[in-house]
């Protein structure tokens, strides 16, 4: 339990380690895309950590990196095929960022640091923690960007998950009488949103430290 909690808070992939930023910035223009991307990463991470921790003893050091990348790539390809057949709308929207999960630093980092060293159980727990932390970070960024950039929250959109759940769920005009700041859903807004969130976290941390020392 402690391991999972650590992955979400103290060792959060995005907000603390700053790894795996490409999808965090690229697909977070709506809330729905953010959590779908987060869940994809969670599934890949779980699968790759499990397999790698199983075979860690029989892989020679020399070919470690190519072998790990191929294992991760296999899971990514599987997800790609599933999404392409089940949710073609989302598949098109996520475009190159889906295959790019293969080279996501957070998955690779976890494979090298945890899965190739620790037991199967620990690797799975670590994958769940890190994956959940990643998903939550993406959800927060996506929420901030969509709320301020478009004044809406998309939970189930028509070309996305609405196909599975049977109805769409988009909350519009969340903040009454608020003019959306267009730049937040543009590429520049992604950098800005992450910068402000990081600064906010730093600010809260230093305040808490001050309180403790007083």
């Amino acid at each position: 339990m402690k391991k999972i909690w650590n992955g979400i808070t103290k060792e959060n992939a995005i907000f603390v380690l700053l790894l795996g930023l490409c999808p965090a910035l690229a697909v977070t223009t709506t809330f729905e895309k953010s959590y779908v991307m987060g869940l994809c990463v969670l599934v890949v991470l779980l699968g790759s950590n499990f397999i790698i921790s199983l075979i860690k003893k029989i892989v020679p050091d020399l070919v470690k990196i190519p072998v790990f990348i191929l294992i991760i790539g296999t899971f990514v390809t599987a997800i790609e095929i599933v999404l392409k057949n089940e949710l073609p709308g989302l598949y098109d929207v996520l475009s190159i960022y889906l295959p790019l999960i293969t080279v996501n630093c957070i998955i690779f980092g976890r494979a090298l640091e945890v899965a190739s060293k620790e037991s199967v159980k620990n690797s799975i727990l670590d994958a769940i923690g890190t994956g959940l932390g990643f998903t939550m970070a993406l959800m927060i960024i996506g929420l901030v960007r969509e709320l301020f950039g478009n004044n809406s929250i998309t939970i189930l959109s028509n070309d996305g998950l609405a196909k599975i759940f049977g109805q769409n769920l988009v909350i519009e005009n969340v903040l009454p009488a608020f003019t959306p700041i267009n730049i937040m859903v543009k590429p520049a807004g992604a950098f800005l949103a992450l910068a402000l969130l990081l600064a906010f976290i730093n600010f809260m941390k230093s305040r808490r430290k001050k309180n403790v020392s007083n």
Binding site: L18, F191, L192, A195, L198
Partner: peptide, 14 residues
């Protein structure tokens, strides 16, 4: 202080 390191780098990128 809160903007040191990564946040300011991201602001520059913005």
């Amino acid at each position: 202080k809160s903007f040191k390191d990564y946040p300011i780098a991201l602001i520059v990128a913005t």
